[in-house]
């Protein structure tokens, strides 16, 4: 059941997007997300859509693969959109029993739907084309400045990369524990919320015990291999900007400029 989630997964490939410096991809994603919220016009959304389609094409990740993984998250989004739809005060359009749909609500819901789905698609392009280690390396190097503020940049990055390494292992373990307890007649599916929560105990206890054990073993193995924090460490794969990375930064600037101009000078009215 966990296996369908592709967010955070890596889709191996050799496209130019795959080869970009992870810092570029992090900044790019950030720029894209900010642009969605900063420019809330239809013309801006059209520019964002075009940009998104182009990037997906270049990345060579099959859109099907990407969308399949997002299914679960779209449901969450739908709920958010519904909240916006019904709970925004303003000019009433339709009234169903006690719930009213307002023009503002409708607009807000559409805004949220577009922004959230693009946000998720945008960031999943980043995770699909960047290995977890590159991503954490990118974060670590990109956030190096924060070290002066005593923010544990290296530690956080190391924690992230270890978490990413162990998530598949723990998922597999969860699956085995579920089976082992089902073999003892455990029932995880029926009953009310309280009964269901209680039924989780036989799953959670072994899972925590296993996770702690792994953490303990791992800490020892890391120490045995000379790990003593980020101090004095060298890198096997240091991040070095190449021409394509600088070009990408230029493209980001260009994108912002187009976004700005489009939402300023091309007015497209909202339907409804």
């Amino acid at each position: 059941m966990f296996k369908d989630i592709t967010l955070g997964q890596y889709y191996p490939g050799t496209s130019i997007i795959h080869r970009l410096d992870p810092r570029v991809k992090l900044v790019g994603t950030l720029v894209f997300i900010i642009s969605l919220f900063a420019f809330g016009s239809i013309s801006a959304y059209i520019v964002a859509t075009i940009a998104l389609v182009i990037v997906i094409r270049i990345s060579e990740v099959p859109p099907k693969f990407m969308l399949k993984g997002l299914r679960a998250i779209f449901i969450l989004m739908l709920i958010t959109a519904l909240f916006n739809l019904f709970l925004t005060p303003g000019t009433e359009l339709v009234r169903i029993w006690k719930l009213k749909i307002t023009q503002e609500g409708l607009r807000m819901a559409m805004h949220m739907a577009v922004r959230l789905s693009y946000l998720i698609i945008g960031s999943s392009i980043m995770t699909l084309t960047t290995t977890p280690n590159q991503l954490t390396d990118g974060l670590e190097t990109g956030l190096r400045g924060l070290k002066k503020l005593h923010f544990p940049v290296h530690e956080v990055a190391m924690m992230m990369s270890i978490a990413l390494r162990f998530i598949p292992i723990l998922m597999d373990e969860t699956d085995k524990i579920i089976r082992a307890q089902e073999a003892r007649g455990a029932d995880f599916d029926s009953g009310g919320i309280i009964k269901k929560a209680k039924a989780l105990v036989p799953l959670l206890v072994p899972l925590f015990v296993a996770a702690f054990r792994r953490a303990n073993d791992l800490a020892m193995a890391m120490e045995a291999r000379g790990y003593h924090g980020g101090e004095g460490r060298t890198k096997m794969k240091p991040l070095i900007y190449k021409t394509r990375d600088y070009v990408s930064y230029l493209i980001f600037l260009l994108y912002i400029a187009v976004m700005f101009l489009a939402s300023r000078y091309i007015k497209i009215a909202w339907p409804l």
């Binding site: 373990e173 524990i177 307890q181 072994p206």
Partner: peptide, 23 residues
Amino acid sequence: FQYPEYQLFEAEVLTDVCFGPRN
């Protein structure tokens, strides 16, 4: 299952063994 760790979860041995028949 291969690892007993996958199924043991109660605080006491006897209660743990009761889990199956209780279900």
